[in-house]
Amino acid sequence: MALANSALKPAPLKTGVAVDMIGVHKWYGDFHVLRDINLRVTKSERIVICGPSGSGKSTMIRCINRLEEHQKGSIIVDGTELANDLKKIDEVRRDVGMVFQHFNLFPHLTVLENLTLAPIWVRKQPKKEAEEIAMHYLQRVKIPEQAGKFPGQLSGGQQQRVAIARALCMNPKIMLFDEPTSALDPEMVKEVLDTMVQLAEDGMTMLCVTHEMSFARQVANRIVFMDEGQIVEVNEPKAFFDNPQHERTRLFLSQILH
């Protein structure tokens, strides 16, 4: 395939720091959902974020591409600070791919159209080139034969792999995963995790909210544990699982590791 190689690898970051969150606070009305979040994610780092439900994990990564707005502190994504400047928000969104729990594919478009829509209209790629790149990523997530189908005709696992391919087609520098396997049937989880492992091996900078602890152990550079809107503990996987420091972490791990 006559593709520029650069289009298929994670796009290089401008700076060494992919995401820098400094003193980030967020409220939903009176509810203080994020409290003084400080997290620095460097190039090619894989961060897994876990914690009980309602602890603010999803809200935190959704702040990184401004699906949620933070009210205090600063979030700098590859040198661009997220503020109310719409242009900068668009810029960041182009460079940050996101995969959702419920896929959020566009049901009225075919798989191929789902993949090429943003490259054509946001990146201004020619249609043919966009389709070539899309087919490449569909091959990588191992479902090129589904290109002409509608999302509703695919299984959950296939839909989630399409969603990953859709994000990759924008050639992102950073990938965010918001519980990508939580809505899947148990038999489908592995195929999605395998795709994510592959992505990690290619050197993609990743932030992933997940309860898949085996994935965390295998892939993560660091695990972030959150509770009640705060980061409670951050550590490397081995130390995190084998020797958790905080009382809350120990309780959480005892609940989910049987």
Binding site: N65, D90, R93, A118, V122, A167, M170
Partner: peptide
Amino acid sequence: GQFEGAMAVGLGYWQTMRFI
């Protein structure tokens, strides 16, 4: 989720409305 999916791939307001 449709709005979020569209925003996350970088589509603007009018593009989101028109295509999604």
